[in-house]
């Protein structure tokens, strides 16, 4: 019996000893990945490595990520800008990125908050949960924010390597980077223009249902208001922008107007400039979109140029 147990422990020992080293190796390489999880790691790494350092921040979901060219904004306004847009996540996780941005040596002076019908909703799953992998070990703030989602367990944040269980693609990506594999930048200052043709997702959604109703989540609304109050108190100039949305998609969301009214009320209450491009000519031209919610690179760059002109009308101080 003793011999058996000793043998068994000796068999498992190398795994235990290697776990931490492997974790460090995989995580340190994975965080360099530019393409995995649609480039989200580029932004997380810039945040954790304190490389965001921008006076203008773009915040929001995937619509922010693919619609607002931060470099173009920064160059045009002669300052630094960074796009923190995050694919698939509502405001709950966007706010976490904002908190990390506030820890940068250069604090933001202007925050452009891209809003959409899903900003104040809340999803239960941790979308693209792999994007958090390299930053998790011993990260209490990330643990706190992700525990509200179905994705990771508490032990994933404390036991080396265990969170990589079943994440073979992430591990292979790390090894690929370590071996000098292809890893070209995909996001520039957080923005990534999309060269994707129209996907027919809207047509397919219409076949399944007549309308879609978005549910607003009270806790997220409260968090959103606290965020506005924080910006006001910190002297950060907040700008709301509702970037173009393809007109047929607008009609598909049953309570779109009510959702926009919520933002409008916040804008009025806290004197926040609100640029709504729902009826902009771009919204009527399908050539500028790859699905109902997202513009392609051409649409995004045309829109960014237009938005910069509108930003110039404001008396922004940075």
């Amino acid at each position: 019996m003793k011999r058996f147990l000793i043998k068994f422990v000796l068999f498992l020992l190398p795994i235990g000893l290697l776990a931490y080293g492997l974790d460090v190796f995989i995580s340190s390489n994975l965080r360099k990945s530019t393409g995995f999880t649609k480039g989200e790691m580029t932004v997380w790494s810039d945040l954790y490595d304190k490389k965001v350092n921008s006076e203008i921040l773009v915040m929001g979901s995937s619509r922010a990520w693919v619609h607002l060219d931060a470099k173009m904004i920064g160059d045009s306004l002669h300052t630094s800008a960074y796009n923190l847009g995050m694919d698939g996540h509502n405001f709950w996780m966007q706010d976490f990125r904002f908190q990390l941005a506030m820890q940068q040596p250069v604090k933001p002076k202007v925050v452009i908050q891209s809003i959409d019908v899903f900003t104040l909703a809340r999803r239960k799953d941790l979308f693209y949960s792999e994007q958090f992998l390299p930053y998790m070990l011993g990260n209490d703030s990330l643990q706190k924010v992700t525990q509200n989602f179905i994705g990771y367990e508490n032990y994933d944040f404390h036991i080396p390597l265990i969170r990589y269980y079943g994440k073979g693609k992430a591990m292979l990506e790390a090894f690929k980077i370590a071996l000098g594999g292809k890893n070209e930048p995909t996001r520039i200052r957080g923005y990534q223009g999309q060269l994707i043709p129209w996907t027919n997702e809207l047509e397919e959604a219409k076949k399944r249902m007549n309308h879609f109703t978005v549910e607003m989540e009270p806790q997220t609304v409260a968090l959103f208001e606290r965020y506005i109050q924080f910006c006001k108190a910190s002297g950060i100039q907040l700008v709301f922008v509702y970037s173009p949305e393809y007109i047929e998609g607008q009609q598909f969301i049953a309570n779109r107007k009510q959702m926009i009214d919520v933002y409008r009320k916040f804008a009025q209450k806290y004197s926040i400039p609100f640029f709504d491009y729902s009826t902009d000519p771009i919204s009527y031209d399908r050539n500028y979109f790859y699905n109902a919610l997202h513009m392609n690179k051409f649409g995004a760059e045309k829109f960014t140029a237009e938005f910069i002109q509108d930003l110039r009308t404001l008396d922004l101080k940075y």
Partner: peptide, 18 residues
């Protein structure tokens, strides 16, 4: 032999499905 078992464990670890 031990390498073979470690390999199986590694494959389980990496490729376990949802």
């Amino acid at each position: 032999r031990l390498g073979f078992y470690y390999l199986i464990m590694a494959v389980i670890f990496m490729y376990a499905g949802s």
